[in-house]
Amino acid sequence: MDDMHQHGFRGWLAAPVPASAAQARAQQIWLGCKRFAANRSALAGLVFLLLLVIVAWLAPLIAPYNPFQQSLSARLTPPSAAHWFGTDELGRDILSRIIYGTRITLYIAVLTAGIVAPVGLIVGTIAGYFGGWIDLVLMRIVDVFLAFPSLILALAFVTALGPGIENAVIALSLAAWPPIARLARAETLTIRKSDYVAAMRMQGASHLRIIWSDVIPMCLPSVVVRVTLNMAIVILTAAGLGFLGLGAQPPSPEWGAMLSTGREFMMNAWWVAAMPGIAILLTSLAVNLAGDGLRDVLDPRHD
């Protein structure tokens, strides 16, 4: 048990009795990270996602070609040393397009998460905290949205709004917030009854303050886990929208849209459809792995 007596930062993190709240929190996070890191598949998922972020960020440096540069004479050339993933129907380099496409995929996923998490949290905690009519009305709305499979709802919205990335994000968010709201409400219901919240009320804390500083932080871990896992679904649905031509518009190298052009050349140019599909599969796999790992750390009640 030598490391127990280590000094410096590691020692501080490993101290058996934390000396301050900050140290306690840091220790908790450190433990969580250690648990996450012990889960090899989760780690692999996270590393892959980090890699994607780097690829998206450094796309212009990494991509061997300009993703928009056409070369009609070199259209549909199979994978080769010059074009690792081959070229598409306008002679553009597929690898470069996939590299630039990570930006779109991450943009859609992060933006959707950024919309869905707060909206779901706010609606869910308000409904759960206040109960009564507010709860009834909000949950009815959630029910109406949940009555549709998310793809169908997103399809209908994006047809109504018109194609495009921003509209796809709106449609995906409209389809994805209700389960988050329902989860946040369920969490809130258990917290609302706690003595702690009652004590805060007695001390005269306002409803909003209690929701903001006590209820929401308590809900946060399970919401984060759920939103992360939902990102995999969002990525797949976004690709589905792109596949149907309702997502990102040309010449944007969105993976689903690339896949859909590949469909036309299925018989004579398999790589046009295969490559973006693999990219989608790996990304959503990584999100799922990382999400599962995160759940084990943050939401141990699950399972």
Binding site: A232, L236, A239, G240, F243, G256, L259, G262, R263, M266, M267, W270, A273, A274, G277, I280, L281, S284, L285, V287, N288, L289
Partner: peptide, 22 residues
């Protein structure tokens, strides 16, 4: 299972057609 819920099923369908049919 993990692959099952990570893979876009329209893509699997396309690949399936290419392999098992064509």
């Amino acid at each position: 299972c993990l692959i099952g819920y990570s893979a876009p099923n329209f893509w699997l369908g396309l690949m399936g057609l290419m392999i098992f049919y064509a």
